[in-house]
Amino acid sequence: MAAPRKPDEPSSPQQVAFLEAAVAQYGKATYNFAFRLTRNEADARDLTQEAFIRVYRAWRSFKPGTSFLSWMYRIVTNLHRDELRRRKGRYQEEIPEDNEPQAFGTGRPLAENPIDDYVEAQMSEPVSKALAALAPEQRQIVVLADIEECSYQEIAEIVGCSIGTVRSRLHRARGQLRKLVNRYMKSSS
């Protein structure tokens, strides 16, 4: 592994190019992953920016041939965990810039297949509420396993725990999620 760059070494053009390419290719995925963890656009922006700053500083430690996205997810997950500890588990609710309530789903792309249509029409709000109501650690696991479709091994590496812990956390989280979705569906109908 190459030696890490000393702090007073000037940024090299390669380092800047590496960052620009990483942001162009993985910026959106990282931002969406951060949003899924935080359920908040302001926090997602902060988390994404901080994650890429870490990438920029540690760019030499990335090993070609390994998954860049897994590395990003690990950085984002760690930053999110640190932030949760700092804020004691409570993220701010974002206040709309015009200070008016915003309708759910505005400005989002239209669904592209029948399942998406159905979910958008029937379950979007209950699922969104249920995800928001999950404990942050459980949400992390559900997002990684069910949305990002990572393997248990990948999740264990990203989150920093054993595969057994991933399995048990995922089972508990999915159980909790089923209950919450059902509850919010009943309350919305």
Partner: peptide, 19 residues
């Protein structure tokens, strides 16, 4: 499936100038 469909539906573009 529901979770993935929901994630696709709420997928966000990067804010303008964010990169």
């Amino acid at each position: 499936e529901v979770l993935r469909a929901h994630a696709r539906a709420e997928e966000r573009e990067l804010p303008l100038g964010f990169e």
